[in-house]
């Protein structure tokens, strides 16, 4: 595998759109050809060479190419977009659309990335060592075909709308997730190792969400069915299975509807008990409130 290194030499005044920076975009090209490739800022077109220094050389094909991008990339969008093979490493923070629509290869972002990382992803591995923004592994705005395959691993936290319209593949979040996870999902698997806030699996049709931490508010469209052992990183864990979203259509297999699955760590017995006590108290309070005057009098 040949390595080509691009180092950003001046910060873009606006945001630089550089979808050409990927193993597919650079493979088989000479240094001069690479420097002449187009990038966009605002409504103007520039050459890659105006913003990046080049070292090394790409391989003949994407599979044989490793691209390393260094320097302050916090104003560069679309890095690794549509990559189909090979390897790419982003050494620092990057802006939106990292690895968007990628279909193969390995893309590692060592810092934080902004929103829309891995949207419409079809295959390959996208590793984000820092935090990711909104709409990680989601569908493009308006589209119903979100992430189809491959894997996204975020080692930090994600903001909202992860896996929106997810159809396949896997998203693993080591940290916490903000609201709206797996909204409208029709397949795929999302694992949240930290905590979630609310709206897990809203309007989810199919697919799986596994939450190892806590959730602030559950969706009303999910119901508890049973406890199941779930394999997480090779370890079996006993978890509570909730199915939903009950407000959505669900196709049937052998007469049985297929639901979206939401696994939540089984609550400790003490907590379960206190919930029962709490519910009983609420029931009593309600009874008292709606009881007729006669009943109250006779009581």
């Amino acid at each position: 595998m040949e390595t080509v290194t691009l180092t950003i030499k001046k910060a873009p005044t606006l945001y630089l759109e550089a979808e050409i920076i990927s193993p597919d975009g650079l493979a088989g090209k000479t240094a001069d050809q690479i420097r002449a490739l187009p990038v966009h800022m605002g409504n103007e077109e520039f050459t890659l060479g105006e913003f990046f220094d080049l070292a090394g050389a790409p391989g003949a094909t994407a599979e044989e190419t490793k691209v390393v991008v260094t320097g302050d990339l916090s104003r560069v969008k679309y890095l690794g977009m549509k990559m189909s093979g090979g390897e790419m490493v982003i050494e620092s923070d990057a802006d939106m659309y990292v690895g968007a629509w990628m279909s193969g290869g390995t893309l590692t972002a060592k810092g934080n990335v902004d929103s829309f990382a891995g949207i419409g992803m079809k295959g390959g591995l996208l590793e984000i060592n820092g935090n990711a923004g909104n709409y990680t592994g989601s569908a493009y705005r308006g589209d119903w075909r979100g992430m189809q395959g491959g894997k996204i691993h975020v080692k930090g936290n994600v903001r909202s709308d992860t896996g929106y319209f997810m159809n396949g593949g896997e998203i693993v979040i080591d940290g916490d997730a903000d609201v709206h996870v797996g909204t409208h999902a029709e397949g795929g698997k999302i694992v949240i190792k930290g905590n979630a806030k609310s709206r897990l699996g809203g309007q989810m049709v199919e697919g799986t969400i596994i939450l190892l931490g806590t959730v602030d508010v559950m969706m009303p469209g999910f119901k508890y069915v049973r406890d199941e052992e779930v394999d997480v990183d090779g370890k079996n864990m006993l978890m509570s299975l909730y199915v939903g979203d009950l407000g959505e259509r669900h196709r049937k297999r052998k007469g049985e509807p297929i639901y979206g699955k939401l696994y939540i760590r089984k609550a400790a017995p003490a907590a379960a008990e206190s919930r029962e006590v709490r519910l009983a108290r609420a029931r009593e309070a309600r009874k008292a409130r709606f009881a007729s005057p006669e009943e109250t009098a006779s009581a």
């Binding site: 569908a139 308006g142 589209d143």
Partner: peptide
């Protein structure tokens, strides 16, 4: 309005 995806990858200046 409701199909921004119809313009994905085909806009031209």
């Amino acid at each position: 309005n409701y199909r921004p995806e119809d313009k994905l990858f085909n806009a031209a200046s």
